[in-house]
Nucleic acid binder design. Sequence first.
DNA 1: AAAAAAATTGAACGACGTTCATTTTTATAT
DNA 2: ATATAAAAATGAACGTCGTTCAATTTTTTT
Lengths: 202, 202
Amino acid sequence: MSKAPSATTLRREAQFEALMQSAEKRICEDGVGALKARDLAADIGVALGGLYNIVADMDDLMLRLAQRTMVRLDAALEAGAASAAAEHPVEVLEGIALAYYDFARQNLQLWRALFEMRLKNPALPEWNIQAQLGLFRHMNAPMTALMPAASEAERILVARTLFSAVHGIVFVGLEERLIAVPQEALAQQIRWLVRAACKDLK
Amino acid sequence: MSKAPSATTLRREAQFEALMQSAEKRICEDGVGALKARDLAADIGVALGGLYNIVADMDDLMLRLAQRTMVRLDAALEAGAASAAAEHPVEVLEGIALAYYDFARQNLQLWRALFEMRLKNPALPEWNIQAQLGLFRHMNAPMTALMPAASEAERILVARTLFSAVHGIVFVGLEERLIAVPQEALAQQIRWLVRAACKDLK
DNA sequence: AAAAAAATTGAACGACGTTCATTTTTATAT
DNA sequence: ATATAAAAATGAACGTCGTTCAATTTTTTT
């Protein structure tokens, strides 16, 4: 049987959740560069030094934020995959790609934070790497349907290529420092690329 | 007739060049995050405050570094485009894509600095935006050959999509924090994607 | 209720980009 | 050549940042 969590533990969890939410709010408003230890400590009503009882350091904080974002992204991709019937694998891949685009648009700053966070220690923890690789999971079934004769390694490689290509289109397309591409046109381009790539697979 | 440059002006130019080279060396060795005003000042034999006679601030420094990198990238893309005959536009596009991959691989940290630099003032100066958009120039001729009936706006849109997709493949592929894709396999994937996309254009 | 352990605090530290009064060097005028 | 004005170079100082730690307060255990 498991012990009832102590009052201290409960407060810790509440503090952690408050910290995450405050950090997410600040990222959404001003980008990942606006995350400041002092601001966050003030937000959640804790002394500056107290932050380091909740997270190890700012790297840890950002990696945990990334994890939360990836969990939500994973759910979004799952929903995107489910928007088409499994008998039409190309449409499933299209659904995933468009879901990715949609998630990036609607969570722009949090999504950008996934790539923009600059860690003191560049090595990612294993749980973070696994979460990233796990995002490809949704492409497994449609890729297998499209490439029944290929090896698993081959399928994974192509899936990653396709995902990367879509990511690139989204990334450049949402780069508002350049001339922005209209949303509908961008979605159209994504659909085109996925379809063109899949057409060539057969 | 133009005045002969004064001794001061000549020294300025020499200092600027030394600063750029020292900065590039440091980026190549330790990434863009390792650029420190004090280090650079020491490198080129100038007092800390003197840096601000050579560049306006660190933003300015990084933007000028980006400019230099883009000039070299532009030349690399041009050479890549020239590696195939103009009568085979798909091969030209392939050459450009592979040249981009090659440049990124051989100038990994400088290339990454293009995307990783975090500016205090996020607005890019016009000359930097133009340099970025100018990179698409090399795709003009092959895209026109591939889409003779399309409008110019359409061609630009598709060119940008294709370039972005290749960028995404390169970007994710070189992300050494994840499982690395073998170089030859990555080049193969790029070739496949470009060919598949072009096949669909006709 | 006392003792031990854990959590919280905020002042202090070192590193950073940037500024500025002062000094030194260069350019101009006599 | 020399005096004067202008420009450039200096490095100490400032404000901000993440992080640490001795001291204090709170919680848990005995």
